[in-house]
């Protein structure tokens, strides 16, 4: 999308940007309705579709939440690369695919931001995973839903500790991503 100009590109961009601000809990609701046994997809009983209240169902919801974030930021980053670069790469003998990879590499600062944004969006997400996963202990309970539960039960110390773990994990993940940005970030 960042590389080519085509009909409907503007519309897709508008949809992506809308998706970036879409309340995750609503996406959770949609996925819930789709996957539930009486839902549109759930009633088809296809074996490759995940069942509700399973980790796989949570992955589906999280993917839908993260996709517009990652795609939107990546598109913006790629559009920031000089369009003439692609012509130069093709001239040097790049296949269209090689040229696209190189342009992505040139936009790596922004692409990593896109991944960080997607990661941040879903690691901190509560509503959708609660709805779709069901917060089942040992199966679909994640840090965020556990924090909600423990706070409700009045176990503030445990909730705080879990919050600390979540923060630490997020911090570490972002450190790794900053490393991936590499030398470009220091310039």
């Amino acid at each position: 999308m960042g590389l080519k100009r085509f009909r409907g590109r503007r519309l897709i961009a508008a949809l992506l940007y809308t998706g970036m601000g879409f309340p995750p809990v609503v996406i959770g609701l949609f996925v819930y309705l789709l996957l539930s046994r009486n839902g549109v997809l759930g009633s088809l009983n296809w074996s490759f579709l995940p069942k509700l209240f399973t980790p796989a169902a949570m992955v589906v919801a999280q993917t839908v939440i993260a996709f517009p974030l990652v795609a939107g930021f990546t598109m913006a980053a790629v559009m920031g690369v000089d369009p003439q670069l692609r012509q130069q790469l093709l001239s040097l003998g790049a296949t269209p695919r090689q040229a696209a990879v190189t342009v992505l590499m040139e936009a790596r600062l922004g692409v990593i931001v896109a991944i960080a944004a997607g990661f941040g969006g879903i690691i901190s997400e509560v509503g959708a995973v609660m709805l779709v996963g069901g917060n089942i202990e040992g199966r679909t309970r994640v840090l965020t839903t556990a924090i909600v539960l423990e706070t409700r039960k009045g176990n503030f110390e445990l909730a705080l500790a879990l919050g600390g773990v979540l923060l630490l994990l997020t911090f570490l993940a972002n450190l790794v991503m900053l490393r991936l940005q590499g030398k470009v970030f220091d310039e």
Partner: peptide, 17 residues
């Protein structure tokens, strides 16, 4: 591709990576 790769252009702007 093999033929196309025998020709290369340098433009007014260097367009370095």
């Amino acid at each position: 591709l093999e033929k196309r790769r025998q020709v290369v252009a340098v433009f007014q702007r260097p367009m370095l990576l």
